[in-house]
Design a protein around this nucleic acid. Sequence first.
DNA 1: GGACAACCGGAGTCGTCAGTCCGTATCGTT
DNA 2: AACGATACGGACTGACGACTCCGGTTGTCC
Lengths: 190, 190
Amino acid sequence: MSGAQERPLRADAARNRARLLDVATQVFTTRGVGVPTEEIARSAGVGVGTLFRHFPTKEALLEAVMVRRLEAIAAQTARLAAESEPAEAFFGCFRLVIDQSEGKNEFAQALAAAGVDAHAALQESSKVIQAQLAELLAGAQQAGAVRSELGLPELIALLVGTSTTMEYLGADPAARQRIFEVVFDGLRPR
Amino acid sequence: MSGAQERPLRADAARNRARLLDVATQVFTTRGVGVPTEEIARSAGVGVGTLFRHFPTKEALLEAVMVRRLEAIAAQTARLAAESEPAEAFFGCFRLVIDQSEGKNEFAQALAAAGVDAHAALQESSKVIQAQLAELLAGAQQAGAVRSELGLPELIALLVGTSTTMEYLGADPAARQRIFEVVFDGLRPR
DNA sequence: GGACAACCGGAGTCGTCAGTCCGTATCGTT
DNA sequence: AACGATACGGACTGACGACTCCGGTTGTCC
């Protein structure tokens, strides 16, 4: 698709880039996207100049973090989907996406608020996951485990919404389990 | 609880205040809470000075808008609850809250991000609605229409989450209906 | 081990936005 | 109609945050 890697980064540059990405993931997730770039740079032990050399824009940093998480989810989803029955795979992946998406909604919003068209890389990763989800959905529906009238848009909206539900609920595992039961039972055919 | 009205506002002041509230509701809902105060003032046909005299802080304006919407929801909920069977009332109010809460999540987040403790008025209105919801939930559970293991926190989280689901889904009424069916079926006992 | 490119740090720039201040206009009352 | 109280408008201020720029440092290759 696009030109692959430019040229290998110098060792220190690669190290800094990775640290920046780690710290940004952590900070954005726990404290929101409003955190100043300077603070992220400091936490990573670099100057702001370094941050902006690697990610020309705060938005670009946000996007890089998102892409990384989406790719991780896609990989786990693929693994899970390969080694289970359709129904089991579907519900397992649903859970997985929810559990992995802590704080991700806010990211998505922040990105969307800044014009989505520019984010080619993100859309790429999104499409991968969406394709996986479409397949899982179709499989589960053929196996009679999910209502047949639901489409991919509804599934995605439900994933986003359930993720929000969980964020509001906090960490209580019993309550989370009850929510999953409500949603999963609702997804099954009447 | 607190001292009621201070002293009747002058006619022009009351008018401006009302216009400000209307415009702010509209603008915050459709374009998010990031819109500059100056623009809200201009749209309402007043200067920023006037805006800040009525609402000493942007946050205070946000809060006033929220309180107003919450009160409207509470009133409609009360009406609906009074004239229906428990189960019907519960599901009707669930729908109502979702339909009325367009864009409200973002408000809540913005307020929360700025320290929640100061927002006494908001918490007041919240409590009213929460009490209504608790009663509706208990009624529906006694009527056997809702799983008995669910508590108020789960219900509230589910409301917030479903509201998010709907926002992602857009306006398609058929799809919205399908989501309601999923969630409502999930809420019913096995 | 030296030389050059690649990379770093962080003080400084620029724009934006919440909130203030005060001279002016409007309301309401006698 | 005239006067005091109340409210208005919008230029101005201060804080903050994204991004730039360049003198100095570090890695890498011969």
